[in-house]
Design a protein around this nucleic acid. Structure first.
Lengths: 227, 227
DNA sequence: ATTTAAAGTCGACTGCGGTCGAGATTTTAC
DNA sequence: GTAAAATCTCGACCGCAGTCGACTTTAAAT
């Protein structure tokens, strides 16, 4: 027996993550060097590599810690009585708001989650499983309420919605969407289309239509301008 | 006047891209250092940075060169008489096949295109405009044929399909999809759902249903296993 | 208690992307 | 033709992520 070693490892690990939370929050991910992180955590640099395979993996661990808060906030915000579309949009926007709070940090995170490197693959999976589970719950309830056809393939639908979330995030980083309000409009349009087909917008309330048309106009103008 | 300087710049630029095509193709992107690239191009290292803001921007230029071939091949492959779904799947798979030809290269590319850094933003836009235009053509034709409701919002639909493409690419890198055949099945399922709503699969031909169910099973087992 | 194996820790070191300032080359001005 | 300004080119240099091999601490074996 010997919890001694185990205990120390736990401590060290915690020290590293704590230091990461502090430094990443204070100065951002890219501005924090592994040397600094090591010094702040009170360990040698390569000790960190005994716990994490790469700097990005430290980021994901950091996110895991932060995500607890984010999800809790999300749960409080999402109204289970609201319409499916509203709930989905709320979820996606919650996630997006959290991720883009710090722009460059969000970019690294999004890249690592969407196209993980071999080293970060497993950890990134863990994280998005949580997100997908949340979506699954929302969809499951909607299905029970009859707001979704009983024969829907939930998993495929989750994937579909996940795709839309990634896209909206992508447009924020490509510069096509420049504010969270616009992101929300875009989200809603996409979700509507996903749930009700290509003609969804045409059948939607007039304010949704207007929102989308505004966005569309902005997009076209901006792309033209940059040529 | 003085084409002299201009000419030289053109030459130098070409030399860099040629060297990049050669080296990236031979040994991959990450395995090629900027020093090597400079030596191969016969210029000083920081000269490259006069032409490209970052190593990733060289990659995008390289892609621009290669993409010509890819698109041409795609055009030959996509049958304009085929059904909309078939055409869309063919397009997406063409793109995916090209990008994932070299795994690590594709990852960098996908990351840079989907969540571009400030330095590569403009160039990455150029590239995906081309892809989106292609999609637009396919959708436009389908609309004329009446295969798509007249009141469809084409731009929104393009965005939607683009999202699905990114997702499929993402699942390849996350390890959920492990072969191009599976990717194709996944593509088809998603496109069907996007065009015909959440119950699309249930109404689809039995072989499509079977394909999806197989994929679904694999996914569930694999995710369970890794815990 | 002592030896041996294993696990953990460390900072010096490597190779890379990217910058800097000096020097060469071209363009412009007179 | 020449001086001044602007542009382009270069490799030495910097900071950083990640590795290596030596050293220390803990666990197991006798």
């Amino acid at each position: 027996m010997s919890g001694v070693r185990e205990q120390k490892k736990k401590q060290t690990r915690k020290a590293i993550i704590d230091a990461a939370v502090k430094l990443f929050t204070e100065k951002g991910f890219e501005q924090t060097s592994m040397d600094e992180l090591a010094r702040a955590a009170g360990v040698g640099k390569s000790t960190i590599y005994g716990y994490f395979k790469a700097k990005e993996e430290v980021l994901l661990a950091y996110c895991e810690a932060e995500l607890e808060f984010a999800f809790a906030a999300l749960d409080r915000k999402v109204d289970e009585e609201a319409s499916l579309v509203d709930q989905l949009v709320a979820h996606m926007m919650g996630q997006i708001t959290f991720v883009t709070e710090n722009r460059e940090f969000g970019r690294i995170f999004a890249r690592e989650m969407t196209f993980p490197g071999e080293k970060t693959r497993l950890r990134s999976r863990d994280l998005d499983m949580r997100y997908m589970n949340k979506l699954g719950e929302v969809l499951g309830r909607a299905q029970l309420r009859g707001e979704l056809p009983a024969e829907s393939e939930l998993l495929l639908l989750i994937a579909h919605l996940h795709a839309l979330y990634i896209l909206v995030l992508s447009t924020i980083y490509s510069g096509d969407v420049t504010s969270l309000e616009n992101a929300k409009i875009f989200c809603r349009s996409l979700v509507l289309q996903a749930l009700h087909g290509p003609a969804a917008i045409a059948q939607a309330p007039v304010e949704v239509q207007a929102g989308w048309q505004g966005l569309r106009q902005q997009f076209l103008e901006q792309r033209k301008l940059e040529m």
